[in-house]
C-alpha cells in the first residue's frame, strides 16, 4: 500500500529510527511500511494518524 510516511517524516526532519521510537516499533518496521512491504495494523495506523494529526486516508492510499 502506498503511503506518505517518508514525506511526513521528512517534513519533521525525523529519521526512520526516530519515527520508530515514536511508534515503539523497530526501524526495520518503519522502513517496511514506508516501502510498502508491510501494511500496518489498524492500531498502528491510528497511532500514525494521531502522531501526524492526519486521517488514515491522508497517510495511506489503498487505491494504488
Amino acid at each position: 500500500m502506498k503511503n506518505r510516511l517518508k514525506v511526513l517524516r521528512a517534513e519533521r526532519n525525523w529519521s526512520q529510527a526516530e519515527l520508530a521510537v515514536h511508534l515503539d516499533v523497530s526501524r526495520q518496521a518503519v522502513n517496511a511500511i514506508e516501502t510498502g512491504k508491510h501494511d500496518p495494523s489498524l492500531p498502528l495506523a491510528f497511532k500514525l494518524s494521531r502522531l501526524f494529526h492526519l486521517t488514515i486516508e491522508e497517510i495511506f492510499d489503498d487505491e494504488s
Partner: peptide, 13 residues
C-alpha cells in the same frame, strides 16, 4: 553514521 535511537520494545526484543 549517527547514534540511532531505539524504541523500548525493539531494544527489549
Amino acid at each position: 553514521a549517527a547514534p540511532e535511537p531505539i524504541a523500548p520494545s525493539a531494544k527489549k526484543s
